[in-house]
């Protein structure tokens, strides 16, 4: 069976990273009924932080967009792990809650988070990937990461291909 989402990711040249696993007392995602609640994800690859510091002082907007894209891909990785690798079970991206580590000069954190939203559209297609969202400037973020994005997905039992 060919996976629509996996095929789209291959076309985009995207590889799913290993989902980040915290040593603290929480988990990467919880499936509650048909809603998958995903923990806040940051710009981390292979347990290394890729983007640290504030926008625009330490990271320019383009770097912040990269950080948002990596965070969004980590959200997809958590969803894949929670759904037994079957991303076709994602029925809808219900919400993104995005935090950008900013100095007061950055008056539009949304411009960084646009890159995360675009990744959801690219990976899941417009019908499933289009989502409401919140994008705000945070005073600071864990370990000084440049952004953090939390997500809720609606999922179905089995993909109806």
């Amino acid at each position: 069976m060919s996976s629509r989402v996996a095929q789209r990711m291959a076309e985009l040249g995207l590889t799913l990273p290993a989902p980040y696993k915290s040593s603290a007392n929480y988990v990467g995602a919880v499936l509650a009924g048909s809603f998958l609640h995903i923990s806040g994800q940051g710009p981390i690859r292979g347990n290394e932080i890729t983007h640290r510091g504030k926008v625009p002082d330490d990271q320019d907007l383009e770097a912040a967009r990269d950080a948002a894209r990596i965070s969004a891909l980590n959200i997809v990785a958590q969803a894949s792990a929670a759904l037994g690798g079957d991303l076709d079970r994602v029925a809808r991206v219900v919400k993104l809650f995005a935090l950008v580590n900013c100095t007061t000069e950055l008056n539009r954190p949304s411009r960084a988070i646009d890159a995360a939203s675009q990744l959801m559209l690219d990976v899941f297609g417009t019908e499933i990937g289009a989502h409401p969202r919140v994008a705000i400037a945070a005073q600071s973020l864990p370990f000084g990461i440049t952004c953090e994005i939390d997500a809720v997905f609606q999922v179905r039992e089995k993909a109806d291909i």
């Binding site: 007392n25 988990v27 919880v30 609640h37 923990s39 935090l99 945070a138 005073q139």
Partner: peptide, 26 residues
């Protein structure tokens, strides 16, 4: 925030294992 996460797992066990985010605000 681990102060809250640890307590919820202490009280509820596996039912207390949650997803979460943590953010610094002004």
């Amino acid at each position: 925030i681990n102060g809250a996460s640890d307590l919820l797992v202490d009280v509820f066990g596996d039912a207390g294992r949650h997803s979460r985010f943590a953010v610094g605000v002004a």
